[in-house]
Design a protein around this nucleic acid. Structure first.
Lengths: 227, 227
DNA sequence: TCATTGTATGGACGATTGTCCATTTACATG
DNA sequence: CATGTAAATGGACAATCGTCCATACAATGA
């Protein structure tokens, strides 16, 4: 009934050409709708019907644009992953060059409202869980994986070296990286589970307290309060 | 065809009475099968058909024993939660009474093969994710929740007091508890994601290194090596 | 031994899943 | 304006979902 009208009012404000720009917009719309459905309903209940309802598009569009629903989910994961890494890279470039400033930037990025919010945390959790029976997701649900792990490892190496702990630097840096990543993972999980009670500032303070005990010369709790 | 035979050979070895013991066994069998299905397939694909296939029972049994599939999942979560807490309590009783020994016991419990294994971690993850659209699960997927949080909080209070840091003890203990739980959460997530590469000993060492930096008088890395 | 009771079976049911395609719509080009 | 091509629609389809029930079975008490 009103489907066509909705589509027109949504994507063709006046009388602009539909063709390619509209096709791209619909493609993006499906991805956004999938993110929303995953967030609202979880992977188990994010059906084709629920996705197209949110996209306000017709049933066949998923097949037309993505071939299958599985593929749509994979592309959605890819989209989310790229957004995460792009924003992270921006944050790292804006921050100062010193290791402590870089680490600080990573913490603030990962706990910022742009990254750690109700929708994205839910989607991230659901897509991770789905890796088991949708192996192709693994490559795109790699938030906080090898790339970031390597960056952190080298940052911590530098920080450890300033203490002159040459002997066990390698192993120490590995352990610190491992623990730091686990800590950040845990923060996200805590946000997921206690969305109402979660205090962003407390989370930041805990992480900086952790960093402070490890590197008392480089970190203090004032870092947790800055945006 | 062979359904009856399977059932008999499984639950009635010789000619024992079926009645109540068998009913209980079938009930337990369904719960175990649900755990297996959740682990193998995830919540999204753990259908009634897949569960009864693993339990080697007939379709109607779920309705008979649990009323609905949703209820079976809830009872399964309850079962898993009770098992986790019962084992944790045993570990805490076996360990020495000092705060550092109690914390150590918690770490070793949470990273032991009995608790942190392929099946249980998968189930834990899936059930947590399902809380969103199955609210009743929340009360039984509370692994590492308020109960454990309180225990840890008081243990860390005691440890902090020995340093004479009376002023900020409360806030410090909260932060430490928060960070510690996040760290353990993250370890589980890491196990989930990198099951092949995960090194139990590395995880233990990282946690103990974390504790050592916080409480250098009470913890050292030798604790990480003991079973 | 026969009736009763509780347990177990497996197929039927409507609802919903993801896929696909015949059809319609709308734009770009001749 | 007419024609061709790409985009979008929404219903048809088989498969599967969870629920439920008529039936069968097995053990117990009279």
């Amino acid at each position: 009934m009103g489907h066509k009208d909705h589509h027109q009012t949504k994507f063709i404000p006046s009388n602009a050409p539909t063709s390619r720009t509209a096709k791209f917009k619909n493609r993006q719309g499906l991805i956004e709708a999938t993110l929303q459905a995953l967030s609202d309903l979880g992977y188990a209940n994010a059906s084709v019907s629920e996705i197209i309802k949110r996209a306000r598009l017709s049933r066949g569009m998923i097949h037309l644009h993505f071939g299958s629903k599985d593929n749509l989910v994979i592309e959605t994961a890819k989209h989310a992953s790229e957004r995460y890494h792009a924003f992270l890279e921006t944050c790292l470039k804006c921050a100062g060059p010193s290791p402590q400033e870089q680490v600080e930037a990573i913490v603030k990025h990962d706990l910022s409202e742009d990254v750690l919010n109700a929708t994205s945390v839910r989607v991230w959790y659901e897509l991770r869980g789905a890796i088991y029976f949708q192996k192709e997701l693994a490559s795109y649900s790699d938030t906080r994986d090898e790339r970031l792990r390597n960056v952190l490892f080298h940052l911590f190496i530098q920080l450890l070296e300033t203490y002159g702990l040459k002997e066990a630097t390698q192993e120490n840096a590995e352990d610190v990286t491992f623990a730091f990543l686990a800590l950040m993972e845990g923060m996200w999980t805590d946000y997921l589970l206690h969305q109402n009670g979660f205090q962003r500032e407390n989370a930041k303070r805990s992480v900086f307290r952790f960093l402070q005990t490890l590197f008392p010369d480089h970190f203090d709790l004032t870092g947790a309060k800055l945006t």
